[in-house]
Every structure is written in C-alpha cells, then in structure tokens.
Design a binder for these strands. Sequence first.
DNA 1: TGAATAGTGTCTCTCAGACACTATTAG
DNA 2: CTAATAGTGTCTGAGAGACACTATTCA
Lengths: 224, 224
Amino acid sequence: MTASDVHVSVDIVVLTLRDSALRALLIRRSEEPYRGYLALPGGSVGADEDLDQAAGRVLREETAVDIDLVHLEQVATYGAPGRDPRARTLSVTYLAVLPDLPEPRAGSTQASAEWLAVEDLDSAELAFDHHTILDEAVERARSKLEYSPLAAAFCSRYFTIAELRRVYEIVWGRRLDPANFHRKVTGADGFIRATDRTNSGGPGRPAKIFELGDAKVVHPPILR
Amino acid sequence: MTASDVHVSVDIVVLTLRDSALRALLIRRSEEPYRGYLALPGGSVGADEDLDQAAGRVLREETAVDIDLVHLEQVATYGAPGRDPRARTLSVTYLAVLPDLPEPRAGSTQASAEWLAVEDLDSAELAFDHHTILDEAVERARSKLEYSPLAAAFCSRYFTIAELRRVYEIVWGRRLDPANFHRKVTGADGFIRATDRTNSGGPGRPAKIFELGDAKVVHPPILR
DNA sequence: TGAATAGTGTCTCTCAGACACTATTAG
DNA sequence: CTAATAGTGTCTGAGAGACACTATTCA
C-alpha cells in the first residue's frame, strides 16, 4: 500500500536566451521508452544527496556551466502513476536559468542536445509529461521576472540596461519602452548596481555597465 | 546509487482562522521518532495514487472537511538525507486553506490534534523539518492573498466584505482601511460577486453578501 | 554631418492610501 | 437620539506608459 519502492529523479528545465529566443535544453532519447523523443535533462537522486544537490550535479553534468552564475530553484513534483511506463517514478523538477555561454557540453554522455525555442514547444513531441513540466517552469520564470532579480541570471556578471531589457522583451514576448524601463530598473532598490565602466564598440552613446545588486525582491516590481 | 527505495509521504499545512488568529493543524506524535512533538498531518502515498489525490485523502482523513470548500495546492518537496532518521523519506508538501468549521474530526485515528497559532510557531517544538515546511507554506499563503482569490477559501461559501477583510488583516497581521479595501475588492474583476442578500443581526448597516467569482487571478492585485 | 543608442524630462492616467462624509441598522 | 458598521466621495502622491528631448558615440 505504501509506495516504498519509488524511483526519484530530478528533471531540470534549463532556460537561456540564444539567437533572440528563449530556449530550453532538451536531450534526444536514444532508449525506450520514448526513444527518439526529446526529454528534459535529468537523473536519479543519489542515496546520500539532497534534492538541490542532485539538481546541481545533473546541471553540471549536462551543461558544464559555472555553477555560480546559475539560478536554480525547485518548481514542483510530479508523481502520477503511469507517467513512466517502467516503474512508479517521482520527478522533482527544477528551473535553471543561465547566460548564453559559448559552451556545448564538451565530450560527456549525451548523444544529442538541443536548445529548443520555447515558442516552438507546442509542436514538439516530448517524452513523459515533460510538456507540462516545461510549461509550468516557463510560466514560473516569466512571473519571477516581475518581482525578483531573475532576469540578471540570463546575463553575464556585468551587463548593460539594454541587455537586461532584451531579457524581459524576449521572455515576455513584447516590446518595452527603453526610457521607462531604464527608470524602472535603476529605481528599483538594490536590483542593479552601476559600475564605473561603460561599454563601447557599437554605434550610439556608450552604456553604463551594471552588476547585480543585493536585493532578493525587486521593489517596485517590473510589471508585465 | 539510485535511490530506488524511497518512502514518499505527503504532509499538509492546513491553515484556517480561529479565535482571530491564523492557525495550523498539528498532530501530537505518540510514536518515535519525535514522540510527543507536534507534526504536520501526513501520510504515505498509495501505490496507485497521484500526489494530489493522496493529499486530498489525507486531508479528509484528518479534518473530515467538505472537500469542495478547500483550497489545496502543492508547495514544495523536501528530501534531505537524514530528515527522517528511520529511512530516506521524501515529503511532498501541500498547503490547504479552509474555513473555520465547527468540526473537530469526530472519532478516527488521531490521538490529539491542535490548532496552533502561526504566531506561536517559533517557540513550538516540531518534528522533522516541519518548521521549515510550515514557514514556507505560510509565506506562500500570505503572498497568494495578493494576486489570487485564496482569501475566500478562509471564508464560507457566502461572506461579507468585512469578513474577507478580516482574513487579510489576520493573515498579514496588519490593519487595512475598510473604505479602500471595499473599493479594491469590488473593483478587482471577477474576484467576488454580489448576491441579492444582506446579513443582519449585529449593529450597524447590514452588509451585502458576496460569493466567490470566476477569476483565478485578482487584478488589480490587493497589495500587502 | 547623420544614424544609432543611452539616458532625462514631462505629461497624463490609474491606483493606493488618508480621511471626510453619507447610509442603515441596533439599542 | 447615539453607537456602530457599510459603503461612497474626494484629495494627494507614486508609479506606469507615451513620447519629446538631450547626450554621446560610430561611420
């Protein structure tokens, strides 16, 4: 009666911006079930691992990313009987957000990984209930842009306000007024902190370079 | 290596208003470990149960409440090794919100249940990591009052605006201006719907009686 | 120079909060 | 009547969005 022999895995929705699109990392499965389908990167939870630890480990295995720059948070847990045809499996799902680094995982395990545009998700065939999991994680990311500094996790350590604005524009899928956006993010207490440097190279007036501030919540929020 | 023999339980933070305080349902444990400590109501997930189903079943077992009136949502999953000294156990935690019904669970299993004021949580000795779980669920409830119709789940099917305001005041722990509150909740599209009835009995002008509307999000939000 | 981007000023509209005021009941 | 609660009017200030305007660079 009690479900004592349950497999527990962590599945991670890894989001980044790439080619002006919000994309999620997906792995082409080479084994049954769902051979040939795309699936979220994931793995089993080790016997002595906490869930957050397991998520961090899986993320490193799949992306080789510098863990400092990553935002990683638990989203939800799925456990419907039959969601995995092999055995009763619980999936503890995480959202990871990272900058678009020039790093496909060097050698390592995975046969083929893809950055699928979230926009094209509806027409993609995903394994298990990963469609639901992705939807929920993406919606979490969208709403957290409003009241948390999550947007900066899509950027490198140092960024301009235009880069930050691009994050909001792409994730939300709508244009924002540059002037008003500038006032809002610089006015939100502790969200971003100016450095004494500016960028250059492109046309136009050089932009100040900012870094992430200490605030854990953005107030006033950047409303969608 | 893979954690295949993991116990999975659901633990529920059941919140209600009682004696002008936000209170959580806790059970005095009669067995080791943590004998004599207070713990969240919970139970194992059945072999053919989905997680939400299991949470609903546990809630009915512990409170005998009419499930229609209850708000029930998953909050988070805890799985640190060692959180239960007996075995590796995953706790999928839920938040339940219900009106203060005149029903202590009739007969049934539980030795002693208590409605502990959330205010007094800091000084309570709770089993396992239930302190953390409670804190997170309470914070979830507090923040969901702002942008969701959750407050109505603390009320009966029909309620006055003053009753709704009391929910916000007690959960947030601060006074709200009755006049401004009235305008805000009646102005939020689809949050509450007026009936043609009024209450009476007490002193003062009778209040219109409202019921919950169809909206899943409250806009504009009722800000804390 | 002009084109492009960064950043500021300013106006209008909406909404939150303070609080005066009206409405309707019990006692 | 007074006390009490329900509900409306109105003013003020903060912030959002529209958009004109200034600042600083590259070609």
